[in-house]
Simulated assay, not measured.
Amino acid sequence: MRKLAIAVAVLMSAGPVTTAAQAATGILATHRAVYDLSLKSASERSGISGMAGRMVYEFNGSACDGYTVSFRFVTQVLTGNESRLTDQQTTTFEDVRDRTFRFVTRSFVDETLDRETRGSARAQDGGLSIALEQPEKTTLNIPDARLPTEHLLEMIERAQAGERFYESRLYDGSDGGDTAMITTSILGAEQAPEAGDDEAAAAGDLSDDRFWPVSMSYFEESAEGDGLPVYSISFKLYENGVTRDLTMDYGDFVLEGELAALEMFEPEPCE
């Protein structure tokens, strides 16, 4: 579910892997965004009768010192007469210059730890070298892929250039942390907020700023043909990396995330 932090990461595009990071470093705004989550739809097969929650995304750091993301995704899930509380907590650090990435994710169900994934990745010899500590200690090498902040920078650069579609390989340490995913991104033309856009007001100083509507789909790397995505997300993206108006499609159910609060931090000096 944290693939929003996206706010954020990949290969299969032309040019050297560092191009986007070199061109766009320094434009990302450090901030804390809070999103209210609600269930948009659910299939009968999902067994879900209701879902609501909150997502908090905090982005700190600089292009010189690296970027830290703290992310928490809490939902109350209703299935028939039962209720389940899920809580996913993720912290990552990424250096876009050295192309290194560290991550830890803990998933709780009803306040009991259900799973922990911890590890790191480093660009090496034209690929990614991954060292996992949890759930099992292991090392492996995979084909090169964009890292989350690197991917966000690339997306902004492509949107600014007027590109509308591209495909990438993304590694963000999700699931077991042992594989990348293929992403397809559709970047809409830059837009101004419409009259009566209540959510825009929550964006504070950004409320009148233009944005790009973005749709992303995530596919298993081993998928063949025109298979269905594992997960899809759409959102409005500002040129400083802030996002709002989220729709997260997990196949059997769809969640909406409305920006409830946005706090912009003072940018860290980059010397």
Rank of each mutant, 00 (worst) to 15 (best):
R122M: 12
R99A: 09
G61F: 01
T92W: 03
R54Q: 13
L113S: 12
T75P: 00
M55P: 03
T90D: 02
V74Y: 02
L85C: 05
S120C: 08
R97H: 13
A131D: 06
K137L: 07
Q88T: 15
L140C: 07
R158H: 07
Q134C: 06
G126M: 04
A121H: 00
F101V: 08
T86G: 01
T117D: 03
E58V: 14
V56W: 02
S38P: 11
Q134K: 09
E82V: 08
E44D: 08
D110R: 07
Q76R: 12
N60G: 06
R72Q: 12
E150G: 11
E136Q: 14
G80P: 11
N81E: 14
S62E: 03
I130C: 03
R122K: 15
P143N: 02
T79M: 15
V77T: 11
E111N: 14
R45T: 14
R122Y: 03
R106F: 05
L153W: 02
D144F: 05
A52R: 10
D65L: 06
P135K: 13
K40G: 10
L153V: 07
A52F: 04
E116D: 04
R54M: 10
S46Q: 08
D98H: 14
L78S: 14
E136I: 12
F71G: 05
L113D: 14
L113K: 10
P135G: 07
M155V: 12
R72C: 10
G50W: 05
C64Q: 09
T92I: 13
L39I: 12
N141D: 13
D98C: 07
D87T: 14
E133N: 08
F103N: 00
T112N: 12
T112K: 13
R99E: 11
F101I: 04
L39C: 06
S120H: 09
R102Q: 13
T112P: 05
N81A: 15
M155G: 07
F71Y: 07
L132W: 01
S107A: 11
T138E: 08
G162M: 10
T68C: 05
Q124W: 08
E150V: 09
R54A: 09
E133I: 12
Q89D: 14
T100G: 11
Q124C: 09
A123F: 04
R106T: 12
T68E: 03
K137S: 10
Q124G: 06
E44R: 05
M155C: 07
S38K: 10
